[in-house]
């Protein structure tokens, strides 16, 4: 039997008026981009990546203010 570890669910932050964001492990940024691009979701990715306490680095994906975070969450849940 082969054990597989399911990757952590990516969640879209819904807080605040400045637009939502997603904290994405750098190793998964390509697939997240692909999903967002496939639905023409406007976003940009931070230039910086952050690794805390030696954990794998993450990067912030910033969604346009007008994007509905719930729609993007549904999209990520369905595709990733």
């Amino acid at each position: 039997m082969i054990d597989t570890v399911k990757p952590k669910r990516l969640t879209v932050s819904e807080r605040g008026p400045a637009g939502s964001y997603i904290i994405v492990p750098v190793a998964r940024i390509a697939e997240v981009r692909e999903v967002l691009d496939s639905q023409n979701v406007p976003y940009y990715v931070d230039e910086i990546t952050i690794s805390l306490d030696g954990k794998p680095p993450v990067v912030f994906v910033n969604l346009n203010r007008k994007v509905d975070p719930l729609e993007v969450q549904t999209l990520l849940d369905a595709r990733l």
């Binding site: 932050s13 807080r15 605040g16 008026p17 400045a18 637009g19 939502s20 964001y21 910033n62």
Partner: peptide, 13 residues
Amino acid sequence: LELPGKAQLYVRQ
């Protein structure tokens, strides 16, 4: 509850 959203505003604006 509020700070992550405020932080996003601080960064982006």
